[in-house]
């Protein structure tokens, strides 16, 4: 079952530790995504007196319940788990091919010596990205979402258990390449970082406003290709600030290295606060 649009059967979200080859299936055999019951269920049990009364007299039953309450509770649990260990977790989101993995590889190579960094890779299929990350010497686990098009808080909880990041470290979560669905799902991260490459349109922040509204930082990547493409950097930044006036913006080239110092300073400033 697709965890998002239910568009096919037989697809299972899996979590793979490439170091051991161990694979965990994140769905039950009946196709339902396993859901950890919260310690303190917020909806009152149906036997509560108010509900009995409502049922007997046919009155409206107030629910006042967030639709994504189950995910949001797990996300909060992840957030507390990370906070108590002083771990900064960032959720990297972009369309496919914007350069998330390349930026991660470069960041791991240049910061990884002085800072423990763990990576959670989200993709529908393959272990390609976690293998690229492991080649830098960093710890990585791969979540394959099957036909699902975003990571959710349950998947991150399982991945963190497997990754077991040390205290005072950085966890980079590379979400499934998709500028729509990941905007809606809190994983418990400190911030979403939206990566947009100059080979995409400058109007992406207006076309996909939800993602840029949810992000704390927009990274304009592939700056080295700017001479070859028709991309108006100022207009793109103005569009992003129109949907999210507070968004931070950094421009860089993960391959050539332009602007990376500012990205590392942004990371260090966030790390200093956890």
């Amino acid at each position: 079952m697709c965890t998002t649009c239910g568009c096919s059967t037989g697809a299972h979200a899996t979590l793979t530790d490439p170091a051991t080859g161990r694979i965990l299936h994140l769905e039950r055999p009946d196709g339902q995504v396993p859901r950890q019951e919260p310690a303190d269920p917020s909806p009152a049990p149906p036997s509560a007196p108010a509900e009995r009364h409502a049922r007997a007299h046919g009155t409206t039953v107030p629910l006042e319940q967030a639709v994504l309450a189950a995910n949001d509770r797990l996300a909060e649990r992840n957030r507390r788990w990370l906070a108590t260990r002083h771990i900064l977790a960032l959720n990297l989101v972009s369309s496919p091919g914007a350069g998330k993995t390349t930026l991660l590889e470069r960041t791991l190579r240049e910061l990884g010596d002085g800072l423990p960094i763990g990576v959670v890779e989200g993709d529908q299929e393959t272990l390609f990205d976690s293998e690229r990350i492991r080649a830098t010497g960093c710890r990585a686990v791969q979540v394959n979402t099957g036909t699902g098009c975003h990571l959710d808080a349950e998947m991150l909880a399982r991945a963190l258990g497997q990754l077991n990041p040390p205290r005072h470290s950085l966890v980079m979560i590379e979400n499934v390449g998709n500028l729509v669905c990941p905007a809606l799902f809190d994983l418990g991260e400190a911030a979403k970082v939206a990566i947009l490459s100059v080979t995409e349109g400058a109007d992406k922040p207006l076309k996909y406003p939800h993602m840029f509204r949810a992000a704390r930082l927009m990274i304009l990547n592939k700056l080295d290709l700017l001479p070859y493409v028709d991309f108006d950097v100022a207009a793109c930044i103005a569009y992003a600030r129109r949907v999210n006036p507070d968004i931070d913006v950094l421009s860089l080239s993960a391959t050539r290295g332009d602007g990376l110092a500012a990205w590392y300073r942004w990371l260090q400033a966030r790390l200093a606060r956890v």
Binding site: P43, Q65, L68, C149, C181
Partner: peptide, 18 residues
């Protein structure tokens, strides 16, 4: 794209209470 999953959450929550 994600409305089916959202709808499932809604139906599940209502079933649990009803």
């Amino acid at each position: 794209m994600h409305e089916l999953a959202i709808t499932r959450n809604i139906v599940e929550a209502c079933r649990a209470r009803a």
